[in-house]
Amino acid sequence: MALVKNGELVNDPFRDVTGADTIPPDGAVLVSLEQWQDHCHSLQRRPDPVGVLLESDQHPEIIADDLDQIAVVALAFPTFRDGRAYSYARLLRERYGFTGELRAVGDVLLEQLHYMQRCGFDAFQLDGEDPARDFAIAQSDFSVWYQPASDGRLSALRLRHRRV
């Protein structure tokens, strides 16, 4: 698994401790919702950033008030057919004002990266030999969009009526 963020292959500074019994005292960590809720105070006091992984049945509204304490929200795709996280991503960006890293993890098809990116994801955990290239290809499929979404791209409708 590699992490592609803003189109580039990066080292993932976050240690995934979602399955662990204890949370290491320092370093950036990715915790589960339960861990976040159980250890909220200690996690918020850490000097290093914390990320929270939400399963696809965990609505981000639960952490909406904590978002300024959270550096990464990782949204799980248990199968590529489970599309809930597209809505979660838009809500996080557009309604809860989350500006940190929004990461897609799990069963992600190349063809879906574009949709995810439009919904506000900026980081993707990917398989494959050259994930950054795959990501670039997936991004180049389309250059026009009908809908406003979380990526700020102008919809065809806006472009049609843009005042010159």
Partner: peptide, 8 residues
Amino acid sequence: LLNPEFAY
């Protein structure tokens, strides 16, 4: 059409 949120 190709609505990113509602393709799945």
